[in-house]
């Protein structure tokens, strides 16, 4: 390529590049001031699986069957079945139900595995803690979370509800 042509190409490409940035200066920023101004999270974004309280009975649906525990790939769910101290018989609800969110992949497989509609995925995006142990949620904490969050249980194969 001849020298004048190179110079012309260079100058042209530089001017065109600067025109792009100049136009971007004039347009509105796209950032959000996070703590003050919350971005709108789309419905259906998953953050934590929690235990659910049955609206009619007022009890949790979980029967401590252990399917979620077995399905969970990283093994972050731990269930201890309740035992009647008098008769030493097993009861159909969990004595302890622990979810270690620091291991959880938020893959939704436990919710899909549950046959009793006892688990729900929440969209509570702000779950960060200073201590990793604080991400270990017990049964009561999971129920509290369920009260604060918005559940997004969708049947498999159905479309996600859109805003």
């Amino acid at each position: 390529m001849s020298l004048p042509r190179t110079v012309w190409n260079t100058v042209k490409s530089l001017v065109v590049g600067h025109a792009v940035t100049a136009r971007e200066i004039a347009t509105r920023p796209i950032t959000v001031f996070y703590p003050e101004e919350k971005p709108e999270f789309p419905t259906g974004s998953r953050s934590v699986p929690v235990l659910k309280v049955n609206e009619e009975s007022g009890y949790i649906n979980c029967t401590s069957c252990g399917l979620c525990e077995r399905t969970c790939p990283p093994g972050c769910i731990e269930i201890t079945q309740a035992v009647d101290p008098a008769t030493n018989k097993k009861k159909p609800w969990p004595h302890l139900y622990t979810l270690d969110l620091s291991h959880c992949m938020v893959c939704n497989l436990c919710v899909e595995a549950c046959p009793f509609d006892a688990l729900e995925m929440l969209d509570v995006p702000e779950l960060a803690t200073y201590q990793v142990q604080d991400l270990k949620f017990h049964k009561e904490q999971l129920l509290d979370l369920w009260k604060t969050g918005k559940a997004i249980r969708i049947a498999e194969g159905q479309p996600m509800p859109s805003k």
Partner: peptide, 13 residues
């Protein structure tokens, strides 16, 4: 500030 606005941010605020 200029960097921010060129990059569709706001910069120091």
């Amino acid at each position: 500030k200029i960097a921010g606005h060129i990059q569709r941010r706001i910069g120091p605020l």
